[in-house]
Design a protein around this nucleic acid. Structure first.
Lengths: 217, 217
DNA sequence: TGTGTTTTGTGAATTGTTTCACATTAATTC
DNA sequence: GAATTAATGTGAAACAATTCACAAAACACA
């Protein structure tokens, strides 16, 4: 089995997902061979970057011949286990949680939200398509569906508490939509997504760019 | 006016938002003075990193005295214009768009979604709290509310088209929730948020960690 | 007022990431 | 089948971000 380097994993993984998306589109358009510069163009990076990224994940092409689209796609799908569906649970059925529970793109990516949880019995009742469980049934569902990854979309105040529970029940990976940084054991992986930050950083960059430009008027 | 360096802007800005959040909490807990190591602890970085970040944005403390919580908070809020509310529009009222339009945290951060748009008249009718407009009224709203930042939450297929329209109407910053990389003029800032990627990267990291661990059994 | 202590601010060193440069290989052409 | 061309793969170089190390400043206390 290939040993991966520790370095650069985050950025290159992001880009690899991007390349995969491009590849799917190119393949569906009937493109048989792709070259590093095709993917580079689509992903807005340099061709060297594409090849370095592939190299990091042990993906190899043919000198002069580029990459066979289908083979490359297969290789990536095996690498990222797109053949398998991964069961995920979602805790917190507020606005965001509800939207995520219905988000159709997850299915295409092998992400299957098997159950959702909320302490509020009202939310447990009224949500249409998907069953919303009480937190009391977390352990049962986690065990039954071999769940190792959870999405946390609860209010800040309860995020750490929910996190602790989940980790105690065997969860090893968390996507955290609350703005608090969770404390977890070192064997648990956390990915923080802060929607306010994402928007505010654009707002601020725009303001800043305007200021810069007004200097030259 | 301070000239900012081009480098390191993205990461440090993320961290600065984090520090701000911590600061708000510390302040509300009555903490009068904070030191770089307090913020470092909360943000899971080194104290040097905190000071370097502050230094990059021209924020200065007192040697030995740390930072006065209130003053630091004020300084950051002025810097990031938290005194002002920024009007933002949201295009695409599918599941995610609807969730974003109701997301209460934006208000606390000076992000005001003034209007939402969708081509689907059904969505225009049924959405309760917020008026959903036809794209035909984009220009009018953008002008009326001096909007420069937009959130795109439309299906992939129409993302680029919507983007082009928005840019033509004066939008200078875009938060893009679709998985396509948008082509924009160099004066437009785009921030891509791909929820599937965020979840899949955790799934994959968990798989990988498990494999690593099983090597030592 | 002086001495010791604590914390900031920042050049220098280190570490990490991307780009460059080019040897290597495979396809194509003559 | 030799020569030419066009791609990959990857060390080396350049660039960027983080951490180290320590001087400078400010407070505490005698």
């Amino acid at each position: 089995m290939k040993q991966f380097t520790k370095h650069n994993t985050r950025n290159s993984l992001r880009r690899i997902f991007l390349y995969h998306g491009l590849l799917v589109r190119l393949n569906s358009m009937g493109v048989k061979r792709v070259y590093s510069y095709n993917l580079a163009e689509g992903a807005r990076v340099t061709p060297e970057q594409v090849r370095k990224d592939f190299s990091e994940y042990g993906i190899r092409g043919n000198r002069r011949g580029g990459y066979m689209t289908v083979l490359l796609l297969n290789e990536m799908e095996t690498l990222f286990r797109r053949d398998r569906v991964t069961n995920v649970i979602l805790v917190g059925m507020g606005n965001l949680g509800q939207a995520l529970s219905k988000y159709s793109r997850f299915g295409q990516r092998g992400i299957n939200i098997v159950a959702t949880f909320d302490i509020d019995p009202y939310k447990q009742k009224t949500r249409d398509e998907m069953q919303v469980y009480t937190p009391g049934r977390l352990q049962e569902i986690i065990d039954r569906f071999h769940v190792t990854v959870a999405i946390i979309a609860v209010p800040d105040i309860s995020a750490q508490e929910v996190c602790n529970e989940l980790v105690g029940m065997g969860i090893r990976g968390i996507v955290n939509f609350s703005p608090v940084l969770l404390r977890v054991p070192e064997y648990v992986i956390v990915n923080n997504v802060n929607l306010s930050d994402e928007i505010e950083s654009v707002i601020w960059s725009v303001y800043r760019m305007k200021e810069q430009q007004s200097l030259y008027l």
